[in-house]
Computed example of a mutant assay.
Amino acid sequence: MSKYLLDKFLYTVDRDPELVERYRESPRELVTWWEAERANTVLNCLTGEASTWQRFTDEERTALIEHDHCKLFELGAHPFLTLTLFIAMFERDNTEPLEYQKAYGARMARFSLPYPDIAT
């Protein structure tokens, strides 16, 4: 398990509107592509420098594909990264102000202290 890799995925996808749309519409394809093409690049540097060892676990990959922010949190993904990305993807589907954020919080309410470790 790599909390760093989960956070890197959430961070990089959130900062690219095209990737946000691809993740919303075709999560399996985006996760598969990102893992093959971007997982081993240096963060925010696409100059060819890369490693070869980082991979999602099956559990991480499934949580990303299913947009399961609660499972991602359990796995150590930072909740602010999931919240900002998922707002970009799903807030437009709601009609009330802050409707998505309230639903996100309600689903996260089952967690109590101590929270899962989100340090990377």
Rank of each mutant, 00 (worst) to 15 (best):
G48M: 06
A50V: 02
L30I: 03
L19I: 02
R61H: 15
A39F: 01
T57I: 04
W34D: 10
P17A: 12
S26H: 12
T52E: 14
T41K: 14
E35R: 06
N40Y: 02
W53F: 03
E37S: 09
T62Q: 12
P27D: 09
A36H: 06
P17I: 04
E35Q: 10
E25C: 12
G48D: 08
L19S: 12
N40A: 06
T32I: 05
S26V: 04
V20E: 11
Y23H: 08
D16P: 00
V42W: 05
A36F: 01
C45T: 15
D58G: 14
W34T: 08
A36M: 11
E49K: 05
T57N: 09
A39S: 11
S51W: 00
T32S: 11
N44K: 08
T12N: 15
T12Y: 05
R28H: 12
L46R: 13
Q54R: 12
S26W: 01
A63E: 01
T12P: 00
L46K: 15
E18M: 07
L19M: 11
T32M: 04
D58S: 13
A39W: 01
V13P: 01
E35S: 11
W34F: 13
S51T: 09
E37H: 04
T47M: 11
L19F: 07
L46P: 05
D16H: 05
E60C: 02
Q54C: 04
R38A: 13
T52L: 03
A36N: 09
L43A: 09
E60Q: 11
A63F: 00
F56E: 06
L19W: 03
R24W: 04
T57R: 13
E59H: 02
R28G: 11
V42P: 03
A63Q: 00
R38V: 00
T47I: 11
W53T: 08
A63N: 01
E21N: 10
E25H: 05
V13L: 05
Q54G: 11
R22C: 04
L19T: 06
W53L: 03
V31K: 05
A63I: 00
E35M: 13
E18N: 15
R61K: 09
E29T: 13
T62H: 14
L30P: 00
E49I: 03
L19R: 14
R38S: 05
P17C: 07
C45I: 06
D16S: 08
R61N: 14
R15Y: 04
E59Q: 08
V31E: 11
T32R: 13
D58L: 08
T32V: 09
S26E: 15
T57D: 05
E49F: 01
G48W: 00
W53R: 13
D16N: 08
W53G: 07
E49Q: 12
P27Q: 10
V31G: 12
V31Y: 06
L30R: 09
V13F: 06
R15C: 03
L30Q: 06
Q54W: 10
G48T: 14
T32L: 05
P17G: 14
D14I: 00
E49S: 10
R61Q: 15
E29V: 07
W53E: 12
V42H: 10
P17V: 10
E18T: 14
Y23C: 07
R22S: 07
N44R: 04
E29K: 14
W34Q: 14
E21K: 15
Y23T: 04
S51H: 05
E37D: 15
Q54N: 09
R55K: 08
Y23I: 01
